[in-house]
């Protein structure tokens, strides 16, 4: 066709898109059901778990300093404060379903929602 794009390129891009969509459906299949446990990990180690149904505010304290604080309200979790420079964890908004997570990369904090009942997809992927 020309120097920039050929038929092969279009096919290649379409294949990439198809792979992405396939991943999308597999990855999001297991967040259909509501979760019920809020699991907090710091640096890969379990920090604490909280029930999603109880409203509360939690400060995550790492080596004596409050690094992040999040709020559990109406079966949803959102990060309300963080000392990291970019505040991306706050911008990630709220999460409520199984498998969703909020990540604060600079503080290595991960807040995940899990479900007590393991579903089919989970039992394979774990």
């Amino acid at each position: 066709m020309n120097k920039i794009i050929s038929k092969r390129d279009i096919i290649f891009i379409l294949i990439l898109l198809a792979i992405a969509l396939l991943f999308y459906f597999f990855a999001y299949k297991n967040i259909q059901n509501d979760g019920d446990i809020v699991k907090v990990t710091v640096n890969g180690e379990l920090y604490d778990t909280y029930p999603l149904s109880e409203d509360r505010e939690v400060d995550i304290v790492i080596s004596g300093e409050v690094k992040n604080s999040f709020e559990i309200k109406d079966n949803a979790v959102h990060m309300c404060d963080a000392d990291c420079p970019d505040k991306l964890c706050i911008k990630q908004g709220q999460i409520s379903r199984d498998g969703q997570m909020i990540v604060c990369l600079p503080n290595k904090v991960v807040i995940e929602i899990e479900s007590e009942e393991e579903d089919y997809v989970d039992s394979i992927s774990k």
Binding site: A27, G44, G99, K108, V110
Partner: peptide, 12 residues
């Protein structure tokens, strides 16, 4: 970094 393979949920 966060030692959590579930990060790949963002990949699609």
């Amino acid at each position: 970094v966060v030692e959590n393979i579930n990060m790949f949920i963002y990949f699609p």
